Structures are given as structure tokens and as C-alpha cells.
Amino acid sequence: MPEPQQPGGRAPFGARLAAAVGRLGPLCVGIDPHPALLASWGLSDDAEGLRRFSATVLAAVAGVAAALKPQVALYERHGSAGIAALEDLLADAREAGLLTIADAKRGDIGSTMAAYAQAWLGEGSPLAADAVTLSPYLGFESLRPALDVAAETGRGVFVLALTSNPEGASVQHVGGDASVARRVVEAATAENRRYSGADRGEGSVGLVVGATVGDAIARLGLDLAAMGGPILAPGLGAQGATAAAMRETFAAAYPRVLATSSRDILRAGPDEREVRASAERTLEGLRG
């Protein structure tokens, strides 16, 4: 049965991501234009440097990565010119047929959350990506405006569930068998079950789970394999995670993992061919 078409003629995000992963593999390349990385590429730390950096990464990984994940804060630090560079990247990726995940980690309530939803997921917004990262720590249901806009427009969300930063445990692990992380996972599971495709793991409500969380998934009793959507797993490479370790960490849920690597791939630049070769090596490890 064909997936329903959303505004813009697109299938739901979960189905589109599953198709991209099936065609290319489970690699997401983060675009993180840190000042030191720009300098190592011989680029200026300004909007023009961002544009050149972004364009090189996009050209290098097209046809290798299933998705791009620009770190929004590193564009925001340059004000309106930086946001314009991000808008250009999102438009260029769309033209190239490459999925984008805006790493914005937005979370608020009421009309403010509705405004974030329209900015990052709304039809016609210059900042609209294929998916956006969200923070649920004002309550999962506070994300309702974004969840609904994503469903209406065929876009997706990735909700922070279990991050690998040391501070995250003080919130996410609280509650033991009824931890905050487990409640987020269960809420995402219930949300995916409202729509078609979740039984195939093609739900459009995904989770962010750090690639270096170790045994926390098992200790907290998180059933990620049954969640019905994708798992965005940052931390591959420079942050210490390996493909082999990720298979052990995610176990039965590994087929749902979209592994994210940024610095480990981008430090091969500025030569486009070297960045592409680095991405290909990373992808080969994930497939192995």
C-alpha cells in the first residue's frame, strides 16, 4: 500500500528516511562549522566561511550519507547572515535530494512551541528541514504543536531521550524502572502508533540516543526496537563511539539507528574528495 502524500507531494519522513538508508546506508553527517574547524579548512569565521564550508560538505557526501545534520547554533552565532547561510544549505540539500535534520533542540510551550514548529517544519518556511531535534523536558505533550505540524507536512522529529553527556543522567535516568528516559521512549512509541508505517519501523517520531550511552539502554529497560521510528545516534568517531560498540549498545534496535559523525569526517577537509573518502570509510564500518 503506497504511503499517503503530504503537502509538497512528499511521503512521511519515516518512510523517506527508511528508503534513503536502504539505498545508501545508515550514515548521517553532521555539519558543525566550529571556529577551529573553519580555521583548519582555511576559511573565515563568518557567514561566507559558513557558506563555503556547508557547500563543500554537501557536495562531498551527496550519494554517500542518508542525511545531513546542521548544528543550528553554529549558524545562529553569526546572526541573520548565519541564518541565511543555513537557509541556503537547506535549500541546496533539498535540490540535491538529501534529507536534512536541523539540530535545533527546540522545546517550549503553547504559542512559542507552535512558532518553533512553523519555523522548522512548516510548509513554505525557509528554515524548514526534513526533521528537527526537540527537547521534551517541559513535558512530552508540550511538543504537540511540532508533532502535529510534522505529521501534516510529512516531516519528522527526533526527541531527546538518552544523551551521553554526563549531566544528562541527572534528569534522564531519574526514576529507575519508570525513568524520564523510559517515559519519553514510551510517549514516542505511542505517537508513532497513531500513523501508518510504525509497524515497519518507519514512524516519523524518532529519538536522540547517544552512541556512547553504554549499558544505560538495558539498565533503564528502554525498548528502542519496538519504538517504531528511527534513532539518531550522535557520537560516532571523534566522541569515542565505534561501529562495533554501537552494535552492542543498541542490540536489537541497531537496524533503526542513524549514526551521526561530524568532526571525524570533516577534519579530512577542505578537499572535497578527502571528505567523501572519509565518509565512505565511516559508512563501510557501519555496514560491516
Rank of each mutant, 00 (worst) to 15 (best):
R155N: 09
G154F: 01
G139C: 15
V132W: 12
E123W: 01
Q118I: 01
A146K: 08
E141T: 15
G139S: 15
W120R: 01
L127I: 01
A151W: 07
S111M: 06
T153K: 03
L147F: 14
A115H: 08
L147Q: 09
Y116W: 07
L147P: 08
R155Q: 12
D130M: 10
W120P: 00
L121Q: 01
T112C: 09
V149K: 00
S142E: 08
P136M: 14
G122L: 03
S135T: 14
L138W: 13
S125N: 04
V132F: 09
D148W: 05
G110C: 05
G122Y: 04
A150W: 02
T112G: 04
S111K: 04
G139D: 14
S135W: 10
G154T: 00
A119N: 01
S111H: 08
F140Q: 12
F140W: 14
L143S: 09
L143H: 14
G139K: 15
A151C: 11
A114R: 10
L143I: 10
V132I: 13
S111V: 10
G156C: 14
P145N: 09
S111G: 07
T153N: 14
A146Y: 02
D148V: 12
L147E: 03
P145G: 08
S135P: 07
A131Y: 03
Q118E: 09
G156W: 11
E141H: 14
Y137W: 15
L134E: 02
Y137M: 15
E141L: 13
A150V: 05
A117R: 04
R155L: 09
Y137F: 15
D148L: 10
P136F: 14
A146G: 12
P136A: 14
G124Y: 06
A114K: 10
L121P: 01
G110W: 07
